[in-house]
Design a protein around this nucleic acid. Structure first.
Length: 401
DNA sequence: CGAGATTCATGTGAAGTATACCTTTAGGCTTAA
DNA sequence: AAGCCTAAAGGTATACTTCACATGAATCTCGTA
């Protein structure tokens, strides 16, 4: 036992293969952004007029997750602010991530957050929305200045809040005498623009920039650069970077995914006391990521969903080759009785099954059996080694057995 | 024997309901002038 | 009178139910060869 512990502690202190693990973490901001020169130049060209105190066009940036949108934007934001400071220009750039629930899920909260970031005090609740608009306008308009508002994940706003919010924002300039506002929207939903009000579309996306996914080669460059800083010398085995990027490229060229893969591979090799990150660790990392994802999904499901899943698992265990919606519903009712839970209608259970299908936890195919009706044929997609953990999670959260 | 009707078990869609969670409003209480 | 707090009132998103109709191939029915 002592020997083992020593080994673990050793790997934590002296023998760590990491130089600085944070370089691989998602919130790390690298000094350079490879393969995004073109996009960065475009953005710079569009926002450039700010340095002459002219209002730049509204800008709309889109591209899938992990394509460097936010990173590039933040880079430009810093550069612009640096310049503005040197020349003492009245330029304000505010970045807001609309996905963060507590900060930005209503019109009011976004405005309040903006005001707070600009150093004005706003009550966190209580004021009517139009008053805070007025306050926002007043505060900005106090002096001659340019304000650029960066809205990350704008698609979330439209989903959660009124369409009009964006329209109002773009129209604010009409009410401002001294200041001017520009809006930069960032979205990873490519269809977002098509689904919004044409009026907003035309004013919000005066300029558009697309961030294409990275291809495998580009991912390799990114990974190499980060790996250099993150790991000590000679730690990464031949072909590891290539494999990592190949996996990530297959999943829409998501650089974040690639970095996660590399970091977790590093963590696993360290934990196992290996002095090198070899190819097999990449596979282990990939497996771990997938496992974690599944377990995370399962453990965060609501009670009813877990009951339905448990029914499917129970049926799979019984070695019935085909599982149908009706069978699930029968067993599900039993489980409800056991846990004194209200029984949902079969209609709803059908929808829940469809949602599990969407999540990739099960595979459900609608088939018609002629005379014997129409149903979903369902099979579980949880890998067998995970089954025990899965059951444990569900039993625990349902307080069963 | 084959075309068309029938049938089953559940898919699917629309509309309605219950609920929880917010925001907004209004009333009442406190406080400061 | 202004400020602040709280309870009630209104709004909205979510999770579900109810009702109604759609599906689609195995099976049945029945007319015809």
């Amino acid at each position: 036992m002592t020997i083992k512990l020593d080994k673990i502690f050793d790997s934590f202190s002296t023998n760590s293969i990491f130089n600085s693990k944070s370089v691989l973490q998602t919130n790390y901001t690298p000094e350079t952004i490879p393969h995004r020169d073109k996009q960065i130049k475009q953005i710079a060209a569009i926002l450039g007029p700010t340095l002459r105190l002219e209002k730049p066009s509204n800008l709309f940036i889109y591209g899938k997750t992990g394509t460097g949108k936010t990173l590039s934007m933040q880079y430009i934001q810093n550069e612009l602010l640096k310049r503005a400071k040197e020349q003492s220009l009245p330029l304000t750039i505010e970045y807001i991530n609309c996905k963060l629930k507590k900060i930005a899920d209503t019109e009011y909260r976004i405005l309040a957050e903006l005001l707070k970031k600009m150093g004005f005090n706003v009550p966190s609740t209580g004021l009517p929305t139009d008053q805070i608009y007025q306050k926002f306008i007043d505060e900005i308009d106090k002096k001659r200045q340019l304000v650029i508002i960066v809205l990350d994940e704008v698609d979330q706003i439209v989903k959660k809040i009124d369409n009009n919010f964006l329209y109002n924002l773009t129209r604010l300039n009409a009410e401002l005498k001294n200041a001017q506002i520009s809006i930069v929207g960032i979205s990873n939903d490519l269809q977002f623009l098509e689904n919004i009000d044409p009026r907003i579309k035309s004013s919000l996306s005066e300029e558009e920039i697309v961030f294409p996914p990275y291809n495998a080669i580009q991912l390799q460059d990114i990974l190499r650069e980060r790996a250099e800083k993150a790991f000590k010398k000679e730690i990464i085995a031949e072909g590891v970077i290539e494999k990592c990027s190949a996996y990530a490229a297959r999943e829409h060229g998501d650089a974040r995914r690639a970095l996660d893969l590399l970091r977790i591979a590093g963590e696993i090799s360290e934990r196992e006391g290996s002095q090198k990150v070899t190819l097999e660790f990449i596979d282990k990392a990939k497996e771990k990521i997938e496992k974690d994802k599944i377990l995370d999904i399962i453990s965060t499901q609501p009670k009813q969903f877990q009951l339905v899943l448990l029914s499917i698992i129970a049926l799979t265990d019984k070695k019935r080759d085909k599982i149908y919606t009706g069978d699930i519903f029968d067993i599900y009712q039993n489980f409800c009785a056991q846990t004194t839970t209200e029984v949902l209608t079969q209609r709803r259970v059908g929808d829940i099954i469809a949602e599990f299908d969407m999540l990739g936890i099960i595979n459900a195919k609608v088939i018609s059996q002629g005379r014997y009706g129409r149903t979903r044929e369902i099979s579980l997609l949880i890998p067998p080694p995970l089954m025990d953990r899965t059951k444990e999670i569900i039993y625990n959260s349902l307080g069963l057995k």
